[in-house]
């Protein structure tokens, strides 16, 4: 690397932010795919969850990468927000941000903070109990078997979505994720320098992704709420 150095320059930080975001967007799609199986088949959902929860590669290779990716993304998000705030030391008395840029693009930190808070709840709901069972109680069987099939994951899922308040929080959080992605998806492509004849089509795809993926998660939460 030149004297600009890794992450020392604004463009390097911007690209790193985009790369972490690409990874998160890919992960989100994978997460949605597995969750969606719970709508069709408790068995398939359990098997997949059991695989993801106990497979060596997933647990000790992919999961650490994911954790680093998420932490990097929001820490960098805070760093950039702070740096950018300081780049205008005296603020305007009158500033019409909405005249030239979308609400989503100007409030990434806000939508991001909602996602972060949601992730706290999400870990409390699903990840911490999982860690407790696996690492404290030492039970790696995906217990509560029924006819030899692990069913704990599905039960745990439907159990959580019984409470209306929790379902409500989940839905609102995914609306904010959608807002985050409505700007973020295409912003990430622009950050890595992709702006060409495919951009118009990609923008449409980005809008579809940003709406349909969070909507999928909302659908799953509502589905289980009203069906169990």
């Amino acid at each position: 690397m030149s004297k600009s150095g890794l992450l020392k320059s604004s463009i390097a930080r911007k690209v790193a932010m985009a790369l972490s975001a690409f990874f998160l967007m890919f992960f989100l799609l994978q997460h949605l795919t597995i969750n969606m199986t719970s709508v069709f088949s408790a068995g398939v959902f359990n098997d997949l969850s059991h695989f993801m929860g106990t497979n060596f590669v997933v647990q000790y290779l992919l999961q650490p990468v994911l954790i680093v990716g998420v932490v990097f993304h929001f820490v960098m998000g805070f760093v950039l927000e702070l740096k950018n705030y300081k780049s205008r030391d005296v603020r305007y008395v009158k500033y019409k941000g909405g005249a030239s840029a979308t609400w989503m693009s100007r409030n990434m930190i806000l939508s991001g903070l909602v996602i972060l808070a949601f992730m706290g709840l999400h870990f409390y709901d699903f990840w911490f109990p999982e860690l407790k069972i696996k690492f404290i109680e030492g039970d790696w069987t995906g217990a509560l078997t029924e006819g030899g099939e692990p069913i704990r994951y599905f039960d745990h899922l439907t159990d959580k979505f019984m409470q209306p308040v929790r379902v409500g929080i989940y839905c609102v959080s995914f609306v904010f994720l959608s807002l985050h992605l409505l700007h973020g998806f295409n912003s990430a492509f622009q950050s890595v320098g992709a702006n060409n004849k495919y951009t118009k089509a990609l923008q449409k795809f980005g809008v579809a992704y940003a709406i349909l993926v969070p909507l999928g998660f909302i659908f799953i939460a509502l589905f289980h709420h009203f069906n169990h």
């Binding site: 320059s9 911007k14 740096k83 780049s87 840029a101």
Partner: peptide, 23 residues
């Protein structure tokens, strides 16, 4: 490389692709 380095030195912020500039 040099122009971006100077841009950062001058204290301008990081682009977050809001597109306000273009408008």
């Amino acid at each position: 490389l040099n122009m971006v380095e100077q841009m950062d030195k001058e204290g301008f912020g990081n682009c977050s692709n809001t597109g306000s500039c273009e408008v």
